[in-house]
Structures are given as structure tokens and as C-alpha cells.
């Protein structure tokens, strides 16, 4: 027999755990901070959000105010982005349009998030014929050219939504339902949500399918959790990571799509503000006043790029890594 006895040693003696618990979200935040593009993107996103909220107040001129003494001015100190054919300050118009872009981006993303998760999770958990049908629907949506589909849906959706706003006006009497801008928004939300939910649905379905096989879900069954509990407490939270990444990169796509629709005349129309229709108006005189196209275009590009940077950095940060000892 060896001489040694087994002395109990408490972990305090060689404690190499960090000072505070490191949750996966905390770890992710730390990783995110390391990414320079991510932080830059985040900075711009926060700036953009700030503008979206305060546009009305910080814009130097009114969105529709026409200054006949300053027609078609190139960028200057008084008009940082110049003016258009009827003397409206482009900078102010861009600021207000950002509001639209963000509003559409966020609301559509929320709708897509909810719908995509519900449908995707249902497909994965119920399985069988339900799953087959849902995949079929998602594939159908994904196979159509996006813009074509969006145009089609917007044309098709306009009458019923118009009907809806009319009846809402009749029942509540609020002036707001009469505003064409509200109608435009309604159509745009519907169209974009319809076109964008399928990729997220696919993602959620895939994630749930793979998570379902993991032992910690089996363990949940063993301890007596109901399917609802497992789904809401364990499956969905673990799907959040990839979902957030998809949504943040997707926001850029949504904003671009909204601009495209507005540019084509089937999205937000004047007097509504949108970078898309600013570009459309600017196109009429792009040779003589290129700033009218370039400015809104560049702003749009920057905003989308920032969201993409953020989404990319989130992607790198959110993969749970096991630190083995």
C-alpha cells in the first residue's frame, strides 16, 4: 500500500473560476466589444436610432418647407446636403426619412421574429404533415423573386388594407386613419413581413430540430417538464442567439426593400418620407443635381452597412464556446 492518504482539498485552493459568474450573454457582450467593426456599427446604429426618435426636432428645416430663393442648391453650410427642385432642404428630409426607415425596419423585424419563430418551432415540434406543409409554403415564398413578390403583394394587399383603415375610421372616428401615410405603412409592413419571414422560419425550424435531440431536452422530459415548458423555457431561449443575428442583418435588407418599394412607387409615397422616394424624386434631375440622389443613397448604404457590421459581430460573439480545462 502506498504511504499517501487522500487529503480532501477544497477548490478554494486552486480556484480558477472568474470573479463573477460568466453567463453566455455576458461572454458574448465581451466578445462583441472586441470587434472593431461591430463597435463602429453599433455606434452608428445608436446614432441612427437617436435621429429616428428626434428627427422632427433636430431637423433645421421643416420637411416640406419650400424656399424659393434657394432652388437646386449644392451642399453648403446652410444646407448641408443641398436643396431640391422646390427648395426643400435635403438634410432635413433625409433625417425624417431615417425615421421611416427605422420604424419600418424595427416593426417588420418584430413581426418577422414572432411569425417566423412560431411557424418554425411548430413545424419542428409537431412534425409530420404539418411540417411538410409549412416547408412547402416557405419554399414557395423563397422561390419567388423578392421584388416581384413584394410588388404583387402590395398591389393585392392595398384594397383590403384600405378597407380596413376606412372601417377603423368609421368605428373610432380618429383622423389618423384617413391619412394615406398610414395606409402606405400598413401595406409596406404587410408586404415586407410576408416576404421576409420565411428565412427566419427555416432557421428556427433547423435550430429547434437539432436542439430537440440534445440530452438536456431529454433530461427535461425525465424530470417531468411538459412540452410547453420545454419549448418556452429551454428551446426558444437557445434559439435566440442565431435568431438575433439573422434579424440584425435582416433589418438592413428590410430597409433596402422598403426603399426599393418606395422608389418604385408602391411603398411609402409623398407626402410620406422615405429614402426611397427621395431617391426617386432625385432621379429626375440626377445629371444636374447629383447630390439629390447621392446623399440619400449614401445615407441608406451607411445605415444598412452598420446593421450588417453589428449582425456579423454578434454572430461571432454568440456561439457558445466551452472552455475545457
Amino acid at each position: 500500500m502506498t504511504q499517501q492518504t487522500i487529503t480532501p482539498i477544497t477548490t478554494e485552493e486552486f480556484d480558477f473560476m472568474s470573479e463573477t459568474p460568466r453567463s453566455l450573454w455576458g461572454d458574448a457582450a465581451r466578445e462583441f466589444r472586441r470587434s472593431r467593426t461591430g463597435m463602429l456599427g453599433l455606434f452608428i446604429v445608436i446614432l441612427v436610432l437617436f435621429i429616428a426618435i428626434t428627427a422632427q426636432w433636430i431637423a433645421p428645416y421643416d420637411y416640406a418647407a419650400q424656399d424659393w430663393l434657394a432652388l437646386r442648391q449644392p451642399p453648403s453650410v446652410e444646407h448641408p446636403m443641398g436643396t431640391d427642385a422646390v427648395g426643400r432642404d435635403l438634410f432635413s428630409r433625409v433625417l425624417v426619412s431615417i425615421q421611416t426607415a427605422i420604424l419600418v425596419g424595427i416593426i417588420v423585424s418584430v413581426i418577422v421574429g414572432i411569425v417566423g419563430t412560431l411557424v418554425g418551432a411548430t413545424a419542428a415540434l409537431v412534425g409530420g404533415i404539418v411540417d411538410t406543409v409549412i416547408i412547402w409554403v416557405m419554399d414557395a415564398i423563397l422561390n419567388f423573386p423578392t421584388l416581384w413578390l413584394a410588388a404583387f403583394v402590395s398591389v393585392v394587399a392595398r384594397p383590403p388594407i384600405s378597407q380596413l383603415t376606412r372601417s377603423l375610421y368609421e368605428s373610432t372616428g380618429w383622423e389618423i386613419w384617413q391619412n394615406t401615410i398610414v395606409l402606405d405603412y400598413g401595406v409596406v409592413f404587410t408586404v415586407l413581413a410576408f416576404v421576409s419571414w420565411a428565412p427566419l422560419g427555416r432557421l428556427v425550424r433547423g435550430q429547434v430540430l437539432s436542439l430537440r435531440e440534445k440530452e438536456f431536452i431529454e433530461a427535461q422530459m425525465a424530470i417531468g417538464a411538459s412540452r410547453w415548458w420545454i419549448t418556452t423555457r429551454h428551446l426558444i431561449p437557445n434559439v435566440m442567439g442565431p435568431m438575433i443575428v439573422q434579424l440584425s442583418i435582416g433589418i438592413g435588407g428590410v430597409m433596402l426593400a422598403e426603399s426599393a418599394l418606395s422608389f418604385l412607387g408602391i411603398g411609402i409615397q409623398p407626402p410620406g418620407a422615405s429614402l426611397g422616394n427621395l431617391i426617386a424624386i432625385g432621379m429626375e434631375s440626377w445629371r444636374s443635381d447629383p447630390h439629390l440622389v447621392a446623399m440619400p443613397g449614401m445615407v441608406l448604404a451607411f445605415i444598412i452597412l452598420s446593421f450588417v457590421f453589428v449582425g456579423d459581430a454578434l454572430n461571432d460573439a454568440l456561439n457558445p464556446r466551452i472552455r475545457e480545462r
Binding site: K214, F216, P320
Partner: peptide, 9 residues
């Protein structure tokens, strides 16, 4: 590791 929900304490 797979037996534990990675997002819960």
C-alpha cells in the same frame, strides 16, 4: 455539457 441548458445557471 449537452445535458445542461447552456443558458441557465
Amino acid at each position: 455539457y449537452a445535458s445542461l441548458d447552456p443558458r441557465r445557471s
